[in-house]
């Protein structure tokens, strides 16, 4: 219980954590990667394709930070460009067409901050995903497995169920960025991390996620088995739900509804 918020941040960023592709390999079978956004490029920071989960066809999408210097550069250290989000949306629309569920694994410090990213509409790409995912007529489960960096993470997390690993973090801004903006002092990141309420248990308490997943055995075969079983039973449950899109709307609709009593003050 003595783990501080900032220690969780450092843990989430740890280079020995499994990255996106590890989850695809560990949990699914028959993965076939599908590349490109059909408009500009194939973004290495986002990996997606079709696969099976205990026999069931699914679309799986993961943000991949990469392993080793060369791969990490190719993956842009897991910071997607607009074409990455557009590829993800293309695959989600494809999943809707062929009536299979979508599973996303999220691990990013944030959407890439670059000149090209702005020229190609980073904001517009994220906005489009938020809009389209909110009405996608097929079940979506998103799992934050490492860093959940702001809009760049949310762009794959407008889902029916959002889960977090115990040491994953989910935040509107990095603690360092927050500290330097608010207090002109990036060394106050620890204080910022506490204030931002960015841990999995905070997110659970705020109603932003449905489940926190213990990770003592992270990366072990039984860890992936456990995740597979959780995903499989949840997809079974979601497959039987009616009004999926309406319920997803309500899920986000109720977050941050101001306390009505405050109005009277």
């Amino acid at each position: 219980m003595s783990v501080t918020a900032y220690e969780r941040v450092k843990s989430a960023r740890g280079s020995r954590r499994p990255t996106g592709i590890s989850y695809i390999r560990g949990i699914f079978t028959d993965f076939f990667e599908l590349h490109g956004d059909r408009a500009f490029a194939d973004d290495g920071a986002i990996v997606g394709g079709v696969a099976r989960l205990e026999g069931r066809p699914v679309t799986v999408i993961a943000i991949e930070k990469g392993r080793g210097t060369k791969d990490r550069m190719r993956r842009n250290f897991g910071a997607p460009n607009p074409e990455g989000y557009r590829k993800a949306l293309r695959l989600m629309k494809q999943a809707e067409k062929f009536r299979r569920p979508v599973v996303c694994f999220i691990d990013t410090s944030g959407a890439y901050c670059g000149i090209g990213a702005e020229e190609r509409g980073q904001g517009a790409a994220i906005a489009e995903n938020l809009m389209q995912m909110s009405a996608l007529n097929t079940p979506i489960i998103s799992v934050l497995v490492g860093e959940g960096g702001s809009g760049g993470a949310l762009a794959l997390a407008v889902a029916d169920r959002v889960w977090m690993l115990e040491n994953a973090v989910y935040s509107v801004i990095s603690p360092e960025g927050c500290a330097s903006i608010l207090w002109k002092d990036s060394t106050k990141a620890e204080e910022a991390a506490e204030n931002l309420k960015l841990t999995a248990s905070d997110a659970l308490a705020l109603g932003v996620i449905e489940r926190m997943i213990p990770e003592d055995d992270i990366g072990e075969p039984q860890f992936y088995e456990r995740l597979r079983a959780l995903l499989s039973s949840e997809l079974d449950a979601l497959a039987g739900e009616s009004d999926l899109v309406r319920k997803r709307y309500e899920r986000f609709r109720r977050i941050g509804v101001p306390n009505q009593n405050k109005e009277a003050e």
Binding site: S134, A157, V172, I173, G256
Partner: peptide, 12 residues
């Protein structure tokens, strides 16, 4: 920033 994740969720 001061409303953390709750602000982020307003985007969705």
């Amino acid at each position: 920033m001061q409303e953390g994740l709750l602000s982020l969720m307003q985007m969705a």
